[in-house]
């Protein structure tokens, strides 16, 4: 857990992840007047693709090397590849990004090679972001607690699904 004047961060590195939900909601039910700008429910996964070929397959599907030609491949040898990719789901309305559930915010999925010491590792981060500021006015702890209580299960299920999709790219189609 990390708390400073600008940020309240709760992380779980062991199951059950629901502990993060319980702690966050309980905290802000007890601190309902806390000014809050935004809430993000994040999911971070490092996974072993199984082999270097499988890891490259993930990168090649997400960023086809035909587009990059001799930037990424030269004389049949790989000289470059995907370093980071971020996809975002949001609809822009009047200059603001809106989620599919109609709330201000976005969902971002980021894929990187893993720097976490995992052999042939890929890293997937899902940022389920809710913007709570309205017309420059901050929201409060009560609203943040209600939001997380309402959105948690669906958010975790959705992020599992996105991570599974990326993991499946590593499998050999043959």
């Amino acid at each position: 857990m990390q708390v400073d004047r600008e940020k309240f961060l709760v992380t779980a590195i062991q199951e059950p992840l629901i502990r993060v939900h319980d702690f966050f909601v309980k905290c802000f039910q007890a601190l309902p007047e806390t000014p809050i700008r935004a809430v993000g429910i994040n999911r971070d996964v490092h996974f072993d693709a199984g082999s270097r070929q499988a890891l490259d397959r993930v990168g090649d599907i997400l960023a086809p090397k035909e587009v990059w030609q001799d930037f990424a491949m030269r004389d049949g040898k790989r000289i470059g590849g995907l370093r980071s990719l971020t996809m975002e789901q949001a609809i822009t309305k009047q200059g603001q990004r809106e989620r599919l559930d109609g709330l201000p915010g976005w969902i971002q999925v980021k894929v990187d090679p893993s720097a976490g010491g995992v052999p042939n590792g890929a890293y997937v981060q899902v940022n389920d972001h809710y913007e709570l500021t309205k017309m420059g006015k901050l929201s409060d702890g009560r609203s943040a607690a209600d939001l997380v209580a309402q959105k948690w299960d669906a958010s975790i299920d959705r992020s599992e699904e996105y991570v599974d999709r990326i993991m499946e790219l590593a499998s050999d189609p043959n």
Partner: peptide
């Protein structure tokens, strides 16, 4: 692939 899964964790943070 879940069997190859490394560490999964979740976090929630507000205001920053």
């Amino acid at each position: 692939h879940h069997r190859q899964l490394d560490t999964r964790y979740s976090e929630t943070f507000a205001t920053g």
